[in-house]
Simulated scan of single mutants.
Amino acid sequence: MTREPKPLILGRREWVALPDLGLFAIKAKVDTGARTSALHAEAIEVFGPASAPRVRFLIHPLLEKPDVAVWCEAELLGVREVTSSIGERENRYIISTRLSVGDREWPIELGLTNRGGLAHRMLLGRQALQPGMLVDPAQSFLLPKLSSRLYRAHA
């Protein structure tokens, strides 16, 4: 008899990492009402050949430390029209990257957008959640805090 893995319970906000992008600690809002995930990005630039486009962008991963800036680069999967929570339609650059939450890692798709003025630099939508994950909307930060000190070590 095989044992089912223990469910991973997430709060409505969690510390996550995007290791392929060099983002070691970022607060994400877990939103099961949102289909797609989004990452606040600035200075977005598409480059490379049309057959294999890439995208470069600037991330300020810590709202409380605006001086921390990380340049990221990823393969561009495409551009998709996404409807925001307030009903506005926007074309977003879509990338794929690894998400690290607790002791688990898996690939997700992310839309790059301007989340300036919002409380979280990242929104984790339901497509990024895996089977066996539960969200407790009454709780926040159920998983260990990730260290922002790693940004200084890679600066």
Rank of each mutant, 00 (worst) to 15 (best):
E4Y: 05
E4L: 15
P5K: 07
P5V: 09
K6S: 14
L8P: 08
L10E: 06
L10G: 06
R12N: 07
E14C: 07
V16M: 05
V16S: 11
A17M: 08
L18A: 07
D20S: 11
L21V: 05
G22D: 10
A25V: 08
I26N: 03
I26L: 15
K27P: 01
K29N: 04
V30E: 07
V30R: 02
T32W: 04
G33T: 09
R35Y: 12
T36Y: 01
T36G: 02
T36R: 13
A38P: 06
A41Q: 07
I44T: 14
P49I: 04
A50K: 14
S51A: 15
R54S: 15
V55G: 11
V55W: 00
R56T: 04
F57A: 08
P61Y: 10
K65P: 00
K65S: 14
P66V: 05
V70I: 15
V79Y: 06
S84M: 04
S85F: 02
I86M: 01
E88L: 10
R89G: 06
I94L: 14
I94H: 00
S96M: 06
R98C: 01
R98N: 10
S100I: 01
S100Q: 14
N114A: 12
A119C: 01
H120N: 13
R121I: 00
L123W: 10
P131C: 00
M133Y: 01
L134R: 08
P137Y: 05
Q139W: 00
S140A: 12
F141M: 11
K145R: 14
L146T: 04
S147N: 10
R149C: 03
